[in-house]
Amino acid sequence: MTPSSEEPAPPAGHAARSGVHPPGFTVRALTEQGRLLLQRREHALVGLSPFNGYYKPRQIRRLLTWCHQVFARVDVFAPGYEAAHTLTSAGLEPREAVHRARRATSQLRNAALGALRGCGVADAEDRVHTWTMLANRPAYARLHDQVRRDYHHDPVIRTACRETARAALRTHSPHDPSERQIDGAVSYPLAEIPLLLDSPAIFRVDSSVFVYHREMTSFTPLILGRSASVRPNERQGYAMLIPDGHPGQDAPSGEDDAP
């Protein structure tokens, strides 16, 4: 794996105009290209995860306020109905799975909307997305269709999806998931991959940095361009945005951690 590049984020975007360097986070770019795209500070795509105690409203507010100060534009995404597939694969009844997924996604969306509005973003409603909402965008739909086809024969995509699904299922059950359970949960990572490959096209920006609070190791080979089927846009970056004093690992998962 290419060593990550770590830097305190220099002022840019809103921060550049105000001359204020926002404290509180450290940025680690996954690749050198990502570090260069970070310096452009044009667009951040911030990923939020359900059933993860890290993403409480206060933390989402801190995270999005920081990004708003640094990047010229910020978009946010949370999982759509695919989150319910993970829960049903873990053994929940479909009705309960849909209820819990909707509730978790609604909590994330409301927190993100509140944070962006608090930053003065006039079109906050247009900046918070779910995968379900993005399905109407041609660039997203095209990539989603492609990776779902390639999943069956591309080992890099298949491994990334199955390892991500396996890890998600483990947070909902004390037992290792079966291959059949993993089969039912891969729709979740398959829906996320288009955003890792080409968020510039999906959000109609010149360059974009996908921001998360830790490295998504299952996706690293895909991000590094090792798939024979798909490659990331050269203007697509990846970065970990880690709170000062935080090791960059997941907080305990589970809806009990969410307010």
Rank of each mutant, 00 (worst) to 15 (best):
R102T: 13
A16T: 06
E7S: 08
V74R: 02
S253R: 12
R214C: 12
R61C: 03
R102W: 07
P50A: 00
T171G: 02
V211A: 04
R117E: 15
Y151M: 05
S178D: 03
K56W: 15
G114Q: 08
E215A: 12
A124F: 07
P243I: 01
L48C: 09
D75H: 05
L190H: 08
V209I: 06
S106M: 09
T159K: 11
R35H: 11
R73C: 04
A72T: 05
H152S: 13
E179K: 12
Y81V: 12
P155E: 03
L197K: 05
L63F: 09
R137A: 07
E179V: 12
V121D: 06
P232T: 03
E93S: 14
A112T: 01
M216C: 11
S173Y: 05
P221S: 06
L143H: 00
Q181V: 08
H14V: 12
P50I: 04
P177Y: 02
V121A: 10
M240K: 14
P50L: 01
R231N: 06
D176P: 13
T132N: 15
I202P: 00
Q107W: 06
D150F: 13
P259S: 13
T65I: 09
H172M: 07
S218E: 10
P189N: 04
H21M: 08
P138Q: 03
R127S: 12
R58Y: 11
P155Y: 04
F219Y: 11
N52E: 14
D176V: 14
D198S: 06
H152G: 08
I223L: 05
P3S: 11
C119I: 14
R109S: 12
